[in-house]
Design a protein around this nucleic acid. Structure first.
Lengths: 211, 211
DNA sequence: TGTACATCAGTGAACGCGCGTTCACTGATGTAC
DNA sequence: TGTACATCAGTGAACGCGCGTTCACTGATGTAC
């Protein structure tokens, strides 16, 4: 319990939870104006601290952005894992739930989603960010491996390829049709239905159809 | 031949082709720093005109951006149509070529691609932009319809849904793995191979496999 | 063909503004004894 | 328990800069007669 103040009482000279508050304020601004749509200065004003305060916690704007993306990927991994639910009640249902979790995250956390995929962070922004990204992908891959295991040995696609396909399908639909914040092309199907149909047809093509 | 000067001689008081030059300069900057990474002022400096000059041609930065996106979608339609090549030599090959054209465009014209899909333009930015977007999608849909026609009448999926799926697959792969400009996740397959495999499995699932 | 005039397209100076970053500072907290 | 001191986290004023936008202007072009 590092003598930090709790509950955001925010009365004293010390904020107590500034880096957390900076992240939240940045997320608000990203949700409103996109990943490029906030300034370091604007964030300090939203939090109510001096413009020099963030430098105690982040080297610069990009470091804050990378931290937000890292947190995003960590939340994302959790959501995908919850969707997977250890493959229960059966692998196929759990697999669909992973796809739905992908779309739900894009819709419910547009600011994180933008920070993760549209912030143009340098690939080597931080070790932690790379790790968090890999972890999220590992969930997709794990789900694919469980489905692949249901196929006869001679007909199994590479799990890596399948995971990349699933990622691309979910991401394509999320990016094009599944964002609530910015105005996207509207189509006469929900992103959820669209993705489920897409994945079912794809799985059918792999021999994982209802047979 | 509206008395415009040609060849960018750019000696006189009048530029002669300023709006074109502004677009090109903006594309250069977008390629380097992303869709949010250029300012009106920076563009005028690159072109070598006064900071007030663009206002004769564009109301503001967003209007320039929308014009760039419109041009991008028009080029995009042409490239996709070339890929389709009127369904020659056969519908399946032509269909794959459309997918490859999608990826080629994302790779070769990252600035246009970013302006089209990542600039967060308001959906009603301009009538011309909406029209150009619709035209590009119509090419995908047309290709899907040709393939669907090969299926027996009872087994035909809705062309709109199929076109949306194809768009999502191509876009997902392009956005995640197919951009040369920004550092993206690298994987041990080319985006082209990845997309071709994805589409083949999908088509197989629709009953359009090699049989 | 020549001339007067209207229109067009770019000028350049100016403005107020918000930005990122620095600096010496100071209040609050933690710790050694 | 009390006191002295070190460390930490936020201050607030200041800086130079590039931005978008405006304005009256002027050079170049097109056209009517």
């Amino acid at each position: 319990m590092s003598g930090l103040k709790r509950g955001g009482s925010r009365r004293g000279y010390h904020h107590g939870n500034l880096s957390e508050a900076l992240v939240q304020a940045a997320l608000d601004l990203i949700a409103k104006h996109g990943p490029a749509g906030f300034s370091f200065a604007e964030v300090t004003r939203a939090v109510g601290v001096s413009p020099a305060a963030p430098y105690r916690h982040y080297k610069d704007r990009d470091a804050l952005m990378a931290d937000i993306a890292r947190r995003g990927f960590e939340m994302f991994s959790v959501r995908l894992l919850q969707g997977w639910n250890e493959g229960q009640p059966d692998a196929l249902s759990a697999f669909k739930a992973v796809g739905q979790a992908y779309l739900a995250f894009a819709r419910e956390e547009p600011a994180y989603f933008a920070a993760m995929f549209e912030a143009r962070l340098p690939k080597d922004a931080s070790r932690e960010l790379s790790q968090a990204t890999d972890n999220a992908f590992a969930v997709l891959r794990q789900a694919c491996e469980a489905l692949i295991a249901q196929l006869p040995a001679g007909k199994r696609p590479p799990a890596l390829m399948m995971a990349l396909h699933v990622w691309a399908m979910a991401h394509g639909i999320a990016a094009l049709f599944g964002r609530s914040d910015s105005a996207r092309r509207n189509v006469p199907m929900s992103p959820e239905d669209l993705l489920e149909a897409n994945m079912l047809i794809y799985l059918d093509g792999l021999g994982l159809g209802p047979n």
